[in-house]
């Protein structure tokens, strides 16, 4: 259910690496319960922005709140309330599915009983129950990605940040992956996702299109298509980016 209650507020966010401006004065809000998409070409500044909001990188300037907490002073509180899936697969490949789940559940301080119930449900949903004692490194990429997403929301965060979660994955698995995202939204989790697949942009409630560190458009896919008189998001993107 989409509200207009902001869970992420970003005001004048700037990030510079030397002379290079990766994020040039970004302003936006993400509403509770929506799927917010960050669309843009490689190098547009999507990952930089997502890393700042997750507390992995410090902004050069700007005011930001995530889950109601200030990004400078309440970083650790933010971390308890978010999940993150990076572009690069970063679960432990030398540990089994079970061991990874136990570890992340453990450091998020989940109660053991709670963790066990959620683990069973999750493995069943992913049809991975019989593979639970397999090392993650031995699994195909599509399974890994779905697993990484499920572990990122295991502790039931308010917001989950997904940085190009479907990179290099086949269309069927991408479809399945988006089903998992919809299920997370039904649980009340807000989803912040970056992608450069334009069909995925259609699945978002609102998208912001980035180019060269700036937000050049921000609206629902329907309104953007109407505004740029395009048939799909691909055309919208090409018209804006030119």
């Amino acid at each position: 259910m989409i509200t207009t209650e902001p869970v992420i507020t970003v005001k004048n966010m700037v990030k510079k690496f030397g002379n290079f401006v990766a994020n040039d004065n970004l302003n936006f809000e993400v509403y509770k319960g929506e799927i917010f998409g960050f669309i843009g070409a490689n190098g547009a500044g999507k990952t930089t922005a997502i890393r700042i909001l997750c507390g992995l990188s410090t902004p050069t300037s700007g005011e930001m709140k995530v889950g109601g907490f200030d990004i400078y002073r309440q970083t650790e509180k933010i971390k308890q309330n978010i999940g993150y899936m990076s572009q690069k697969f970063s679960l432990y490949e030398d540990l089994t599915i079970n061991e990874n789940i136990r570890f992340y559940g453990g450091i998020y301080g989940m109660k053991i009983a709670d963790r066990k119930v959620r683990t069973e449900k999750m493995l069943e949903r992913l049809e991975l129950t019989e593979y639970r004692n397999r090392k993650i490194g031995d699994l195909p990429l599509g399974w890994k990605q779905k697993l990484a997403f499920s572990i990122a929301i295991l502790h039931n965060p308010k917001i989950v940040f997904l940085d190009e979660p479907t990179g290099g994955v086949d269309p069927i698995t991408r479809r399945q992956f988006w089903n998992l995202i919809y299920e997370a939204v039904e649980q009340g989790i807000t989803v912040f996702v970056t992608t450069h697949y334009m069909d995925e942009a259609e699945y978002c409630d609102r998208v912001s299109i980035m180019a060269e560190g700036r937000i050049v458009a921000l609206d629902t896919p329907e309104r953007l298509k109407k505004q740029y008189s395009a048939n799909n998001m691909d055309e919208v993107f090409l018209k804006i980016a030119r």
């Binding site: 997750c54 992995l56 978010i82 999940g83 993150y84 690069k88 970063s90 450091i107 998020y108 301080g109």
Partner: peptide
């Protein structure tokens, strides 16, 4: 090097 530290760094650890 593996990047696994990123996943640790977004936790409240």
């Amino acid at each position: 090097e593996l990047g696994t530290i990123e996943q640790i760094n977004v936790t409240p650890l």
